[in-house]
Amino acid sequence: MNDNTLISVSDLKKYYKGDAIKALDGISEEILKGEVVVVIGPSGSGKSTFLRCLNLLEIPSDGHILFNGTDITDPKTDIDLHRQKMGMVFQHFNLFPHMTVLRNMTVAPIKILKKSKEEAEAQAMALLKRVGLEDRANAFPSQLSGGQKQRIAIVRALCMNPDVMLFDEPTSALDPEMVGEVLDVMKQLARDGMTMVVVTHEMGFAREVGTRVIFMDEGKIVEESDPVSIFEHPKSERLKSFLAKIL
């Protein structure tokens, strides 16, 4: 493990129903600062479970996850503290419908980081400007399109100044014409040097932005490499047949 390691996963396992269903079957992985790791694989391959284990939305059955050198799988670790540094973006946005866009973005910085309202709102407005939504600050989520909601969800997570951003199929619930605007925000984020772990079906994004691509199947990492090797020279039969089906 070198100094640049942000997240270190060792022998991660997640079983359901005793050990009848092995969603994750021994995953070991190092995620370095500044990497954009894209996780691909067929549905049911465990890629979302892997991502959700990283901030303990799923409790692993076995194995360890070190984040910034702390073992967050230890029950004695205060996970709330570490989640502040791990932004998460969901497939279904999960904005808070009873709050305005601005309140969605400032509630955590104000309540958790104890920022002043002015400071939190100034930061939120700057982020809204970056994603071109500063005129929607006082709108409620139900007044936004899917693409707008997801862009808000991304900047909401950014308001906590996270060390890493986790994306769980961020474009899967969007109408096709809105996928681009969300991917653009993610690309911009990657260019700015944010560490990202992205579960997605957007192979174009994986190829263009990913620094590393992980292909998972049946709870295991089957193949991982830089995007060119994965997409141009796949080695395993499973990856070849997966790519043949989707490309």
Partner: peptide, 15 residues
């Protein structure tokens, strides 16, 4: 309630 609301809150660092 949509479990996503709890997950979104927890993932921001709320208890």
């Amino acid at each position: 309630m949509d479990p996503g609301q709890m997950e979104a809150g927890r993932s921001l660092g709320f208890s």
